[in-house]
């Protein structure tokens, strides 16, 4: 078998070389998390401190808050945000009018390219009590103006909804492509059998997407603690900190600002371990339940 498929080994060679050189060779750097890193002495020359940085993180007054905030944002994004690109792709697939379809696709995909700085800037402008469009609309229907960005409890909703706005179109691309490769003879057969659009969507299209959905879900579960730094950092202000301080922003302020790479590395490693553990569990579950899994 190996001999017969010798060419396949050449297929994987470039990628393997890349991974070894740029990912596996540098992996010795993980030990920064267990050392007190002095840049001039190099990684190996820096003293070993064991779990010191981890303990600093665990003992921090903010440890539980920060993890709680991260999970809150992450899970909300997953539960509320994940289905939307799938739905969007399914709906677009049923559109016969080609021009309209292209229009919707292009318009929904465009927000992905707006840089985070501008995106959050706009968000803040829209939500301003006295001059933001959202509050203007509330006032127009007689409701009270709200300082959305000031109420910490709103934070994860604002984060998630704006992410949905920005990313759904882009995320739906992979599903649109998957739907495009559905065998049309199958579809014809279903029509002949009397299935209407809704039924076809549920019984043919959706199943086709299942492998991709499952894989994406598994991979998402592996980033449960990794809520992105930039957007949250830009959205933070003194009044919403109780809900907006997440692991990555906390580490940034506590570590990187003083050049404390070791601390940042330790927290990062902790993150990765938890993420990986969750991934393994979810993958195991997926293997038991279905055919698709990550490995």
């Amino acid at each position: 078998m190996i001999l017969r498929n010798w060419q396949l080994y050449l297929f994987v060679l470039p990628a393997v070389v890349y991974y070894i050189v740029f990912h596996y060779v540098p992996i010795y750097g993980v030990q920064i998390a267990f050392r007190q890193y002095y840049p001039m002495r190099g990684i190996l020359g820096s003293p070993w401190v064991g779990m010191k940085h981890f303990m600093r993180f665990f003992n921090s007054y903010y440890f539980t808050t920060v993890i709680g905030n991260t999970l809150r944002i992450s899970l909300t994004a997953l539960i509320v945000g994940f289905p939307i690109p799938v739905l969007l792709a399914l709906m677009l697939n049923e559109v016969q009018h080609l021009r309209f379809k292209k229009l919707v696709q292009t318009v929904t995909y465009a927000p992905h390219f707006i840089s985070m700085v501008v995106m959050v800037g706009m968000l803040i402008l829209f939500l301003t009590p006295s001059s933001g469009i959202i509050n203007h609309m509330l006032a127009a229907v007689g409701m009270e103006r709200k300082a959305f960005m000031q109420d910490a409890r709103n934070f994860h909703w604002i984060y998630v909804f704006s992410s949905i706005w920005q990313e759904s179109g882009w995320s739906s691309v992979i599903f649109v492509a998957a739907l495009a490769s559905i065998d049309s003879s199958q579809v014809e057969a279903a029509i002949i059998d009397g299935a209407n659009k809704l039924q076809r969507m549920v019984y043919i299209n959706l199943p086709v997407l299942i492998p991709t959905i499952v894989i994406m879900l598994i991979m998402r579960s592996g980033s449960i603690l990794s809520v992105g730094f930039e957007k949250v950092y830009l959205m933070q202000n003194a009044t919403n900190l109780s809900r907006s301080e997440i692991i990555s922003t906390y580490v940034y302020k506590a570590g990187l600002i003083d050049g404390d790479f070791s601390f940042a590395a330790a927290v990062g490693l902790f993150n990765s371990l938890i993420n990986f553990a969750i991934l393994v569990l979810v993958n195991l579950f997926a293997r038991r339940v279905g055919e698709t899994s990550l490995w």
């Binding site: 803040i124 939500l127 301003t128 009590p129 300082a147 000031q150």
Partner: peptide, 11 residues
């Protein structure tokens, strides 16, 4: 100004 916590310098 009650918006002092939510507005940035440009606003």
């Amino acid at each position: 100004d009650n918006e002092v916590f939510v507005q940035n310098y440009q606003q």
